[in-house]
Design a protein around this nucleic acid. Structure first.
Lengths: 180, 180
DNA sequence: GTCTATATGCGGATAGAC
DNA sequence: GTCTATCCGCATATAGAC
C-alpha cells in the first residue's frame, strides 16, 4: 500500500468550510485545500471533478444548515417566529460570510436551496395570512440579504445603525398587513 | 516625439467603464484596459499608481452618477419622490451591474459615496417626517440593495416575482408610519 | 488514492530604453 | 508618456507512474 487513503469525503468538506471561514473566498483553492488535508492538489480531482463541483457541494451543505436553523425555532405567533427566523438568518450570514456569499451566487434553485426558499415562504406567508405569498417572501428576503450584505461590508460603519434591522423588519411586517 | 500622448484621463475612465459593462468585473484588467486604449499595460501606471487607485476613481464616478440620478427627480409628495428614487436606484444597478458591485464593496464612506448616502437619507426622512432618520434610511437601503442583488443573480428566476419590489417598498413606507 | 512533473493561462507590477 | 522585456505569483487542470 504505497499510497493509502488519507482523506474522507467528510474531511474534505470540513476543511473546505474551515478555509472559507478563515481566509474568505480567496482562501479556498484546490492547492490550499489539499495542503490542509495533507495531500497534493491533483489528488483532489479523484473526489471532485473540478472546482465548480466542490463549490456546489459546499453550497448544498450551507443551505441545509441554514434551513435547519430556520425550521427549529420556538413555537409562537407567526410574527414572533418570523422575527426569530430573521435573526437566525442574520446570524448565519455573519458566522459564515464567505459560505453565505458563495450561496448567494447564481445557482440553480433546486435541491437544498429550493427547500430553503420554501421554508422562508412558509414563515412569511403565515404572517401575511395568504398562502404562497411570494411577493412578501421576496421582499423579506431582499431586506434580509441586503442588510447582512451591507453590514458585512462595513457599509454602516463600525458602530453602525443596526437599529435599522429591527426598524425595517417591523415596518415590513406591519406594512404587509396594512397595504393589502 | 517618439512616444506621443495617446490617452487622456477621461478616455481611460470611459474605457474602463465600458469594459466593466461588457465583460463584468473580470473583464477589467490592466492589460485589457490598455489594449482598449491602444497602448501597453505598463503605460497605465503613469496614470494610476495601481489597480486599487483606478477602481477608487471608478467608484467615485459611479457614486456621482447615481447621486445625480437620485437628486433630479420630479416634484411631488415625499412618498412619490422616494418611490421614484427607488426605481432609479434599481435602474442604475441593472444598467451598470459590475460598476454597482464595485461600489458596494468595502469602501471608505467619504467623498462621493458619503454625498450619495446623504441624498438617500434626505429622501427617506421626508417620508417618515423625522430628521436624520438613519434607521429608516438603512432599512430602505438594505431592501433596495438586497433586491437588486438577488434580481441580478437570477435568484428569482427568469420570470421572477418582481412584484416583490412594489410590495416591499410600499410595505416599508406604510410600516414606517404605523410603527413609530 | 496518491504522487511528481508539467501544461497552460491569467493577473499585477517593475526596470530601463526612447 | 510610451515602449519592450521580464519577473513574479497565483490559479485550474492533466498525464502517467506507483
Amino acid at each position: 500500500m504505497p499510497y493509502p487513503t488519507r482523506t474522507t469525503p467528510a474531511a474534505i468538506l470540513e476543511s473546505a468550510l474551515q478555509l472559507l471561514e478563515s481566509g474568505g473566498a480567496d482562501g479556498l483553492t484546490m492547492r490550499s485545500l489539499a495542503e490542509a488535508l495533507g495531500i497534493k492538489a491533483p489528488s483532489l480531482y479523484r473526489h471532485y471533478a473540478d472546482r465548480a463541483t466542490l463549490e456546489a457541494a459546499l453550497v448544498a451543505h450551507g443551505a441545509v444548515q441554514l434551513q435547519t436553523m430556520l425550521k427549529e425555532i420556538a413555537e409562537g405567533t407567526p410574527a414572533a417566529r418570523l422575527r426569530q427566523a430573521a435573526e437566525r438568518y442574520r446570524e448565519f450570514a455573519h458566522a459564515h460570510p464567505a459560505l453565505y456569499a458563495l450561496m448567494m451566487q447564481p445557482q440553480p434553485m433546486t435541491g437544498a436551496p429550493k427547500a430553503l426558499w420554501n421554508t422562508v415562504l412558509k414563515l412569511s406567508s403565515a404572517v401575511t395570512k395568504r398562502d404562497d405569498d411570494t411577493a412578501a417572501a421576496v421582499a423579506l428576503w431582499a431586506f434580509l440579504h441586503g442588510f447582512v450584505s451591507l453590514e458585512r461590508q462595513g457599509a454602516f460603519g463600525a458602530s453602525g445603525p443596526q437599529a435599522g434591522f429591527a426598524t425595517g423588519l417591523t415596518a415590513l411586517m406591519v406594512g404587509f398587513g396594512k397595504s393589502s
